[in-house]
Each structure stands twice: as C-alpha cells, then as structure tokens.
Simulated assay, not measured.
Amino acid sequence: MNICLSIVVPTYQHPAALLQCLKALLSQSFDKHKYEIIVVSDGPDMATHQIVFDLIKSIPETTIITFCYMPYKKGRDAARNLGWQMAKGQLVAFIDDDHIATADWAESFWTEYKKHQHESIVFIGNVNTSRISLLDTSKNEQQPLSAANCASAKTTLNKIKGFDEDFARSWGDQNALHFKMLTTNVPFIHVDGASSFNAVRDVNWGISILQSKQHIYKSKLFSNSSSSESIPWANYFIMTILFVFTFVGWAWDLNPFALIALATWFLMVILLTIKRMENIIPSFTNIVEMMATSMFLPFLSIYWSLRGTYKARILHSSKNKKKYESYFNSSDGIPASA
C-alpha cells in the first residue's frame, strides 16, 4: 500500500467529537488506499482509545487508523509533533478532533501540494466556526490561519522542527504555527477547498477573557494576517487610565475627581459592551457576561499585547539571533517516534 498522505488528529477526552471527525475523514473523496489517519491522544485516555478501537473494527482492513498517546499531557502541539514523526506520507495534514472536514478536504491539500512538491510551504485550510450558544447561527466566523486545519510536507516539518510546544502553551497554537513559519522563512498558501467546520455548541461563561490571550498576540505579532478582528486599542488605554485615576483620586482624597473618572470609565464599559453585542443573541445572561468581561478585557488585552511585543522584540533582536537560531535548529523537546 502506497501511503502518500498522513492525517494527524490530536485529541484529548473528546470521544464523541472525535468520532464525528473520524467519520468525515473516512468519507473523503481521496483514494482510501493512499492515506492514513493517526490519532494522537494528549495523555492516556481510555474512552478515546475505546472509540477508536471500535471504529477500526467496523471499517475495511485496507483503511489505516493508528492510535497512540502521550505518556502525560503536554499540549496539542506535542501531540501533533508525535503524529507527524510517525507519518508515512509525503504530505502531513492536521485537523483537530472537533472539526468536520468537507469531502474534498484531503484531495484539495494533495492537489495544492503537487503544484509545489519541492517547495517548503505550509498549506492552510479554511476553518468555519459557529458559536451556537452565543452567536446568531446565521453568521459564521472564518479563521484565516489555524493549526487546526493545515498541511505540510514532512520535509518541511523536519526543516522547521515541527510545532513549537513552548510557544503553543502560552500563545495559542495558531499563533505558534505562524510564528514558527516567520522565524524559519516558510511561507503559507491558503487552500480554499480544504475547509472544515467547527461547531462550538457550548461556550463557557467568560470565554472571551481566556481567548484574549491568543487574539492579542495574533493582532500584535502578525499584522499581515487577514484577520477581520478590530481591537479598539485607544479605548482600552483610556479605560485603563481612567481606572487608575479613580484609585489615585480616592487615595489622595480627591473624591469628585475619582467619581468623574469612575463614571467615565463605566460609561466606556457600557459602550464597549454594546459594541461587542452586535452579533450576540441579546439574552439577559449574555448581556451580563458581556458587561462583566468588558470590565476586565482592556486590562488583559494591554498586558498580553505588551508581553507579546516584548517577546517579539527579543526574538528578532540581533543580540539574541544566534541563541534563537540554535533553539529552532535543536531537536530538543520533540517527542521520539512511537
């Protein structure tokens, strides 16, 4: 059997979503004899193991599905690294366990790869999401760059030493992928036909606070990205200054000054909430959530922005050039093949 395409699916404790993902991968238009599926669990996970084992028993023996797991939880990028090192194919495609690939997803990546077979390129698919519990379901959000749906020649992955596990833990895996591409001068190409759908049906309360970490890095470090997200930095800085003025006023017994600053800050929180509610279902719970998170979002956004800018400046400075070149050329931290 001549395997030319390997599909790596990082997962952890999402057996139901993984099953739907694998069913879509098994229904690809791509020749069934020419691709394999490698499921990598980010740590021991018996429920996931059982799901994959039962699925393997129900499909023809000619279809190759391999299951392996990390000895302990290290993150999705560590799971991806283990998966691509096990891959038999020339081209390695990555898709997350909560994504449903379109029928021509694999074929689209392979067709684009054949056009650039001897070039070091990362191929990026389209990720369409619908946050059903919060957003109007008629409006989908498209992410232009994501490690959740991408592909690369195995030779390219060897060149860039795979996914950066340290940055992925703190910056979000799509930002880590983009940063790795920039530091190793590997370009990326969008493959329109390689689309996947990610239906996020349960959005945790206050999720925007957690997401601010990766979105801020994305906007600061990767200004060439086609992301449509617009961050009101001027308003964020004004809100932060007003909040500081409130405490300074109270500390110095300037109560009128403090009240004016606090009232202005609260008005800006309301305006920010209204702005963020544009595509949100206007339920009482969602309004309260948007109001509460709008109070903290400016402070966290500025913090992550400054931290990201500092890291970027260090990584690109000539003083640290050799240090980080040796880091990216090192094989340390990449798990051995199973």
Rank of each mutant, 00 (worst) to 15 (best):
F266N: 02
D104E: 12
N126S: 11
F222V: 09
E112P: 05
I270G: 00
Y310D: 05
Y72V: 05
L22S: 07
S228R: 12
E289W: 04
K180R: 15
K159N: 00
L315I: 08
Y303V: 01
M70Q: 09
V203W: 08
N255A: 05
S58E: 12
V39P: 02
I270T: 07
W252R: 09
Y113I: 09
A338V: 13
L135A: 10
V92T: 10
Y113P: 04
A17N: 12
L300W: 05
L157N: 00
T129A: 13
K319L: 11
S318A: 15
A251D: 03
C4T: 11
A106G: 02
H118N: 14
I260E: 01
R76A: 15
F257E: 06
E107R: 04
A336C: 07
T285P: 00
L135I: 10
I274K: 08
I121M: 13
K74Q: 11
N175V: 13
P298N: 05
Y113N: 06
M70D: 00
F197M: 11
K115C: 10
T246K: 02
Q20R: 15
N235R: 09
F237E: 04
K218G: 14
D98W: 06
L242F: 04
S120Q: 14
S6W: 03
L19I: 07
M268R: 00
V52R: 02
T309N: 07
P232Y: 07
T11W: 07
H316Q: 14
A153M: 06
T246M: 03
T240C: 09
Q50G: 00
P44E: 08
L267I: 03
Q174R: 06
S6P: 05
T309G: 09
Q28C: 08
L145D: 04
F222G: 09
L26T: 11
N158C: 05
S225V: 06
L145M: 06
E141A: 09
A151K: 08
G89T: 03
G193D: 02
S152D: 06
C21V: 07
D104M: 05
T63R: 15
H178E: 11
I65V: 10
C150K: 01
A153R: 06
W105P: 00
E141R: 12
S283T: 14
T293C: 08
R201H: 10
V40N: 02
N198M: 14
G172M: 02
Q90A: 07
D164G: 05
